[in-house]
C-alpha cells in the first residue's frame, strides 16, 4: 500500500486554507463568508489528520472531531445571526454593516 507523502497533504491543507481566507476577504455576501470559513476549518482539520497519520497517533483524529463539532456550533450561531441580519437590514452585504466605524 502506497502512502501519500505528508508534504502533499500539508500542501493541500495550506492551499485550501488560503482559498478559504481569500474567500473571507474578497466576498461581500455574508453567506459566502461563512462558507469560506468552513473551508478554512476543514483545511485545519486536514492538516491534523495528515500529521496524525504521519506519526501514527490518534490525537489528530480527536482534534478533527473537535473541529467538526466547533464548525457545527459555529454554523448554528452564524446562520442565526445571518437570519437576524437579513430581518433587520434586508441585506446580506457585510460591508453595509459598518455603523461602528471610528
Amino acid at each position: 500500500m502506497t502512502t501519500i507523502p505528508m508534504e502533499y497533504g500539508i500542501l493541500l491543507a495550506a492551499i485550501l486554507f488560503s482559498i478559504g481566507l481569500v474567500g473571507v476577504l474578497v466576498r461581500r455576501n455574508i453567506m459566502f463568508i461563512l462558507m469560506s470559513l468552513e473551508v478554512m476549518f476543514n483545511a485545519a482539520g486536514l492538516a491534523f489528520i495528515v500529521a496524525g497519520s504521519r506519526w501514527g497517533q490518534g490525537d489528530g483524529q480527536i482534534m478533527f472531531l473537535l473541529i467538526l463539532t466547533l464548525a457545527a456550533a459555529e454554523v448554528g450561531v452564524g446562520l442565526g445571526l445571518v437570519l437576524q441580519m437579513y430581518r433587520r437590514f434586508r441585506t446580506l452585504d457585510a460591508d453595509a454593516l459598518s455603523g461602528m466605524r471610528g
Partner: peptide, 18 residues
C-alpha cells in the same frame, strides 16, 4: 490617524488579523 483604521467593515478587520 488611528481612528481612521476603525472602518467598521468586517473584512477589513479580518485582513488586519491575518
Amino acid at each position: 490617524a488611528v481612528s481612521r483604521t476603525q472602518t467598521g467593515q468586517l473584512r477589513w478587520y479580518a485582513a488586519g488579523m491575518m
